[in-house]
């Protein structure tokens, strides 16, 4: 297994990373770190296993480490203050303009699962393996994440725009 084996998976890793990280630069940093770690740890990959699932599992670990590093560095964490606050009142909800800003408001552990299932079409069992958590946890985070996303988005979009989403 080498860069050539991994290359076909790069577009999907980028798609997921873009949705997870928000902006293109941060997303490609995430992909780059993932690819580097995959190359460095290629001896750990079992040839009979699913390479795509393995790469997504690595990306999950890299993502979690980045979040930890960010919360350990207050100056970097300041960036989080740029995000709109979690809406509590009807009026605040109107601030959330679209799906992407709503996604950014989900807790990362819910965002990951909403995306792996909804965007990457992983089964619940595949998500559980990639994230190394029980399937019950996958489901409860998925349910909460989807419901939160729903209230965020329906609060933000006027009725005609909702139709356009279809």
């Amino acid at each position: 297994m080498d860069l050539h084996a991994i290359a076909p998976h790069i577009p999907r890793l980028r798609r997921y990373a873009r949705a997870l990280a928000g902006d293109q630069h941060a997303a490609d940093d995430l992909v780059q770190d993932t690819l580097e770690r995959a190359i460095n740890k290629r001896h750990l990959w079992r040839p009979d296993s699913d390479l795509r699932a393995w790469l997504f599992a690595i990306m999950h670990n890299v993502f979690v480490n980045q979040l930890r590093a960010r919360s350990a560095h207050p100056e970097a964490a300041l960036a989080d203050d740029d995000l709109p606050p979690v809406p509590s009142a009807q009026g605040a909800r109107l601030e959330i303009r679209d799906l992407e800003s709503a996604l950014a408001l989900l807790p990362p552990e819910q965002r990951e699962i909403v995306l792996l299932v909804g965007l990457e079409q992983f089964s619940y069992a595949e998500v559980a393996r990639a994230l190394d958590i029980p399937i019950g946890t996958v489901m409860s985070r998925l349910f909460r994440g989807r419901e939160r996303l729903r209230t965020l988005v329906t609060g933000a979009l006027p009725a005609p725009a909702l139709k356009a989403v279809k």
Partner: peptide
């Protein structure tokens, strides 16, 4: 929820 999935794919 179905619209969410469709919107995610349309966006990304």
């Amino acid at each position: 929820y179905r619209e969410q999935n469709a919107a995610l794919r349309a966006a990304f």
